[in-house]
Design a protein around this nucleic acid. Structure first.
Lengths: 227, 227
DNA sequence: AGCGATTGTTACCAACTTGTTACCACTGCG
DNA sequence: CGCAGTGGTAACAAGTTGGTAACAATCGCT
């Protein structure tokens, strides 16, 4: 699920891209209106997040041009909160209009609401990469070349936390909190769960990913690209 | 293009209905959550404008029930402007969420954007595909090469919810809400109903569709094109 | 009234999940 | 060297989930 983020504020662009990746989307970024159109044409994203104040070609014009050629879902992002701006954007062809500042959770929820309708695949319950991806709605993990592997609820939580932080060491306390809540687990339980998930991965998805131990600290997920 | 306006504030309900009629829409109104569900069922509107603070059954529950059974576009209207409320509404299945107060022009623009995106038409009496289709008016399910199969009311609700979401896993809670309403059923009842519907399908429409179990989550309908 | 269909409730069983306990090897420290 | 702590591995027991079946109550129709 590929989303083109068009935003001239580089810091905001990075934050949005990071948020989207953490929620299972793949992102491409552009920082001016003309580059946006070229990128949209070349990459054929599943959605465009479109700032309105852009160098070289403003967001309304970009929307107009995309909409004239395709049905790609478009969400506008702007500090302009007047009715005139909102109505104009929606009439030109935007699917939604979000006034800045906005929260990451609302952005993601609105993206999902629009994608739910435009059917470019189901809501991305999927987290991960091409090599290893989790499907929450099915409690499954998928890797190319292997049949889907169904995980138990706790196994799924552990793997998801590791996948979201793939390549980095996740401290044990954080894993415990993510899996059992604030006061619900301990290191013995985590150790056993890690052993179980490792066994599952080794047996059913050999060579795809490994869980590395960092003594006294925690665990990290390594996929082949990290090993 | 018929729009159901669910709003307990009678003055606002009238203003909205007037605005919509002036913009070419036909309107029906309801003033509490239970009446809304009955009206939605009886009138099959093209869209629902849904206030959240309603007597008898709150707007979130109404949305949940409609969404569990159908793809009718839903726009939520509410004074609640917190991220939590907006995200919750969108996740439950709303297509847009408009914070009160809003202007008529923005309301109409957002309605049009949602209708554009959903390509809305009336919910048909028949739901499904060439391979498997439900006829609500006759409580029948039809598949090529087999005589029509008459289903019991609860079986019909279950199969309809599964057909509308064919290929995807429908969480048990959603199925329960769709069949028995918000507080009316439990997992044991669902389990038994699933068993009964499965037996019917296997006996009377062999090979046409199967109901897949995703442990701990719910069920999905697979037709031959999904298997 | 009788019968068939529907639905809720209860019962039984197999498979799975999870917490707890046990044992062992390794490492670091006193 | 001995001990404590950590991490890996394995087994056991309790609880949960889902499939299957039967019974009883209710409703609608003849």
């Amino acid at each position: 699920m590929k989303i083109l983020v068009v935003e001239d504020d580089l810091a905001l662009s990075d934050v949005i891209a990071f948020t989207l990746r953490r929620n299972g989307f793949e992102t491409i970024t552009s920082h001016d209106g003309q580059a946006a159109l070229r990128t949209w044409e070349a990459e054929q994203p599943d959605m465009v997040l479109l700032d309105l104040n852009l160098p070289k070609l403003d967001g309304m014009s970009v929307c107009r041009q995309i909409r004239a050629q395709a049905t790609t879902p478009i969400i506008m992002l702007s500090v302009r909160n007047s009715d005139e701006a909102i109505v104009q954007g929606l009439e030109i062809g935007a699917d939604d209009y979000i006034v800045k500042p906005f929260s990451p959770s609302q952005l993601v929820a609105r993206i999902r609401a629009v994608l739910r309708r435009t059917g470019a695949g189901a809501t991305p319950e999927s987290v991960g990469s091409d090599r290893l991806a989790l499907d929450r709605s099915r409690s499954e993990v998928n890797a190319p070349g292997f049949p889907p592997v169904r995980l138990a609820p706790l196994e799924l939580r552990l793997l998801e936390t590791l996948i979201v932080n793939a390549g980095a060491v996740v401290p044990a306390d954080r894993l415990i909190a993510a899996i059992w809540g604030v006061d619900g687990g301990d290191r013995t339980m985590l150790k056993q769960l890690v052993y179980r998930l490792r066994s599952r991965l080794d047996t059913e998805l050999p060579g795809v990913a490994t869980i590395e131990t960092v003594p006294g600290i925690g665990y990290a997920l390594l996929t082949d690209s990290d090993a």
